[in-house]
Write a protein that binds this DNA or RNA. Structure first.
Lengths: 105, 105
DNA sequence: CTCCGTTACTACAATTATTGTAGCGTCAAT
DNA sequence: ATTGACGCTACAATAATTGTAGTAACGGAG
């Protein structure tokens, strides 16, 4: 069961998902795994967060069946995780449009 | 300029965007605005966060040109905000599949 | 067998973010 | 004058995150 300490006490899947994805570093971790498995430290260095929180988030993502640890290769997206990532890929292109439109990034 | 106190010090649009969307309540606020404008308090009640943080997040979202305040109607998504929301809509359906697959929500 | 590097991960104090409660200032209607 | 809706702020209490250090398990080289 994914903890929902924060908002969305309704238990509706979309709320639980938005809650999970809205936790610091979660989106970023999923994003960093887009091209294949990464080691714990490698991931930690890539995003620049503390090992404590990287480990916490990885545990949450594993519990949510979005990420798994392969002893030989490192952390990687599960089938579900890759599906989710696919939904997010359009963000990449859109973010550049957004940046141009706002001068914000 | 969107602050990037947290991760993503690269300045790449996708990183800035993931950082912004990864802040607590941001995804939820965008989601709550999907059906039209909401008043400050209404929004606050809907998500159950403190007025302090709701106001902080709304300010960030306004700076990012994703949300705007219409004095007559309340807070609402801008054109860019609606584009972003459209990218997120598939999450709704997928979240139910995810919930069934994991028993997690 | 021991030393060395790599692995995932934990301990813990310091710092930062968020909450919860109360309330302010403005405006419009009564 | 009062009331109510509105966006928003102050501030102390609590929770989340960081940064640094270090643990424990494993595998290969000497």
């Amino acid at each position: 069961m994914v903890k929902r300490v924060r908002g969305s006490r309704t238990g509706r899947p979309i709320m639980v998902l938005l809650d999970l994805l809205g936790r610091r570093w979660v989106l970023r971790i999923v994003w960093e795994l887009r091209d294949g498995p990464r080691r714990f430290r490698e991931l930690q260095d890539a995003i620049g967060a503390s090992p404590t929180i990287v480990n916490t988030r990885l545990a949450e993502l594993r519990e949510a069946r979005l990420v798994e640890l392969d002893a030989a290769a490192g952390y990687r997206l599960t089938v579900l995780g890759r599906e989710l990532l696919r939904l997010f890929l359009p963000l990449h292109l859109w973010s550049e449009k957004w940046a141009r439109a706002t001068g914000v990034a």
